[in-house]
């Protein structure tokens, strides 16, 4: 079954890693991407505007109940958790998880719940453990887990913890993650 959603979680060093990843995805990329990058709660939309410069895919800062469209990039807004329902996003201002709001765990777990084996979870550079639990749930529900090779990560803490805790499908250097996503998400027979 084709993948419909790629969820990505990252904290320290994430902006630069996301730049590398997003700029390699083509206009016809067939899945939606949902991203949690840990950020200060007072940060504005400058981050998504910044990343828009590096990708041909439209970048959104998610608004509550926004539809999930293939080939679009969705950012968790500052100070909200980003949750996935089947076909659309929801937001919450529940307590921070692992000191983080938005939390990677919240995104990945809700995506796994809604999309099961049609979701890919990607963990990039990061300095704490938020995202490990989420990736584990995503994998348990039949999703596919990809982790950035800690040797290529600005901060190896999160990728190392994810690899230790989860039976991940691929550990890849940053530069190979986008090509892998393109390959995995390609429509059958293409």
């Amino acid at each position: 079954m084709a993948y419909e959603l790629v969820t990505i979680g990252t904290s320290l060093g994430g902006l630069s890693a996301l730049k590398t990843l997003l700029r390699s995805l083509p206009r016809e990329f067939p899945a939606a991407l949902a991203i949690v990058q840990h950020r200060h709660r007072e940060s504005d939309q400058a981050m998504s505007a910044f990343l828009q410069q590096f990708t041909v895919l439209p970048v959104h800062e998610v608004e509550d109940k926004e539809c999930i469209q293939p080939g679009h990039v969705y950012f968790a807004p500052a100070d909200y958790h980003l949750l996935v329902e089947y076909g659309y996003f929801s937001l919450s201002v529940d307590e921070p998880v692992s000191y983080a709001r938005p939390s990677i765990d919240v995104l990945l777990e809700s995506a796994a719940d809604a999309y099961h084996e049609q979701v890919i979870g990607v963990i990039l550079t990061g300095a704490n453990h938020d995202g490990v639990q989420g990736l584990s749930t995503l994998k348990a529900r039949g999703g596919t887990a990809i982790v950035q090779d800690p040797d290529t990560a600005e901060s190896a803490v999160l990728p190392t913890a994810a690899i230790a805790a989860v039976n991940v499908d691929w550990v890849l250097p940053l530069g190979q993650i986008a090509p892998r996503l393109i390959h995995l998400c390609a429509p059958a027979g293409a």
């Binding site: 329902e85 929801s90 529940d94 809700s110």
Partner: peptide, 9 residues
């Protein structure tokens, strides 16, 4: 209620 956040709580 929105399902995903309700379930989490």
């Amino acid at each position: 209620y929105a399902k995903a956040s309700l379930k989490r709580r």
